[in-house]
Design a protein around this nucleic acid. Structure first.
Lengths: 329, 329
DNA sequence: TCAAGATGCTAATTCGAATTACTACAGGGT
DNA sequence: ACCCTGTAGTAATTCGAATTAGCATCTTGA
């Protein structure tokens, strides 16, 4: 393998010093730096002839910045089963990274110790990057705490509870989105609501349930929280509008109701809250909201840039867009 | 931003020299290097406590390994329009990288100069990685040549013609796959074939056409090459079996034939050759072959590891699996 | 008891480029 | 002759980690 040319080589060929080559290469004119036009031309000619390109590694070593942004996920991102979830986020991340002139480092080397990746292991490579975007429905709290104490610049996609300190994040404003759905349903005459789903565990689940509770309280209407167990318990309780955390659960409700000869939304309205841990049928035209995944990816990278440059702690919730659908009436 | 820890810092904390930290970190025991167990333990403890990781840039400057593998694509990988194409490759790449304990660097910073990314620009970052996987239907020949002359380890996914030297690649064996299809069709009685598609441009297209020509020659049957222009020219020429380079073209043929009251495969057999530059309907059950994309991704990373470690020039074609379908008879 | 050998660690150098402080010299003014 | 200013360039240092030569110190064996 042919040894790569260095500035020293160029310098020798042009009969100048390495420093001069560097100065010419970076076209420096400021701060009392002067290179005679002929010298400059001579150096440039040698560079042109040899096709010399500065070694980016040495360059970065000096500049203290990599222009590398890390992306950490707690599972592999590409398998098609997970692709639907990660895809839009990554799309936004990639877009913004390109704009910022940064490369993306996927931490694929993180060993799945005990089935799940961990950021910090014996040989953590997290510091390879200037900073890191965290992606996943839930994030290990110990990992978060350690990121904070070690002062590693990072931004979580998705709101996160404090973990020994405020966690920088770019999330979706689930409370507002869920309140909006309830508002619309109340305006249409609904008075008995149910929230079907976990409502806890991940912050995103808790936030949705919180929005639900706030909304029913504000309107003074009935609202119960139940784990998702199918259609019967809901009908028995006289519910007229169900908010299903999981899209696939919402879809299941619609199908079950119709199978039983009930009309959706005539007899029952079904609203879906965007959680997609399982694949769901696409053809049901469910009413709900759209999580701005791609935009979240973009904003996360922007926020990360700020963290890296100014050490700020950005926390931001993006608005979810209402999706009219046809299951609310 | 909190200053990043250096070996010097670790050394101070452990009360040893920077050299010792380096030796412990790399677990060196050879060549007269000896570190007392207690010292080693003390250093490791500090490393563990602080979560210190060697700066890859500095490391790379000195030796030649980062455990970072680059992935270069000539367009953004995540946009959903391209996802179907890239996804399976990336899945394999990620899998194998994880196994090899390497991280993946996506060259998102490569500016699309003139609409298309280029590997080499004024400030090429290609050398951040230990080596690089190239992904794309076509690859810039100048880029290839420069990769070769600069001795940068890389592997192309997809066979590539020489570009001032043999290009390491992991491709699909299109000639064999196409020959196999022709063989099967001949065995079923077909004697007049057409190859519909570009048959040139990308190596993958040329390889398919070459396989076609070899096969019809070997069997002594009729075989013409036409650009894809719909159904009529084929019927006029008395063709009974069409091999459509593009999946979507194959699908179009089937639909057109059936619309005209013809039976597929009764009146016309349609074989598809797996090229997917455009989205195609999934429900037609076309006869053809499956490109082992995921496996290609895996093998490419394995091959790249060999290139990096031993400077070899692996060239390999993987077998495409026959897909029976229902459009050959 | 003293040289030989083993042990444990460190000083110094290297990688390639960027940057700063500084030198060397020319010409002008007094 | 002296200082001053401007010009053109270079030597030396820096970034962080890896490596090698070599310096102390401690054990043995004769």
């Amino acid at each position: 393998m042919a040894k790569r040319l260095t500035q020293q080589d160029i310098a020798r060929m042009a009969g100048v010093s390495q420093a001069t080559v560097s100065l010419v290469l970076n076209n420096r004119q400021d701060g009392g730096v002067r290179i005679a036009p002929e010298t400059r031309a001579r150096v440039l000619e040698v560079i042109r002839r040899t096709g010399y390109v500065a070694n980016p590694i040495a360059r970065r070593l000096h500049d203290q910045r990599n222009r590398i942004l890390g992306v950490f996920t707690y599972e592999a991102v590409f398998p098609s089963t997970r692709a639907d979830f990660y895809q839009p986020f990554l799309e936004g991340i990639e877009e913004q990274a390109e704009e910022a002139g940064c490369d993306l480092l996927l931490f694929t080397s993180a060993k799945a110790a005990g089935g799940r990746r961990r950021i910090f292991s014996d040989d953590s490579r997290i510091r390879l990057a200037d900073g890191c975007v965290l992606l996943g429905r839930t994030v290990d709290r110990d990992d978060l705490a350690q990121l904070l104490t070690e002062g590693i610049p990072f931004v979580s996609i998705g709101r996160r509870d404090d973990a020994g300190g405020a966690v920088p994040h770019v999330g979706a404003d689930y409370p507002a989105a869920v309140r909006d759905l309830v508002d619309r349903a109340v305006a249409l005459g609904h008075r008995k609501f149910a929230y079907a789903g976990a409502g806890k565990g991940a912050e995103s689940s808790a936030d949705r349930l919180r929005g639900f509770r706030e909304a029913v309280a504000a309107h003074g209407v009935d609202g119960v929280h139940v784990p998702f167990t199918g259609l019967d318990p809901l009908l028995g309780a006289g519910i007229t509008a169900v908010l299903a955390e999981e899209v696939s659960d919402g879809a299941a409700l619609v199908l079950a109701a119709r199978e039983r000869g009930l009309s959706v939304p005539g007899d029952l309205s079904v609203l879906t809250l965007g959680a997609a841990t399982r694949p769901a049928p696409q053809d049901l035209d469910l009413t709900g909201f759209r999580i701005p995944r791609r935009e979240m990816g973009r904003r996360a990278v922007q926020a990360l840039t700020e963290v890296i440059e100014h050490g700020t702690t950005p926390r931001e919730l993006l608005t979810c867009e209402f999706v009219a659908g046809s299951t609310l009436g």
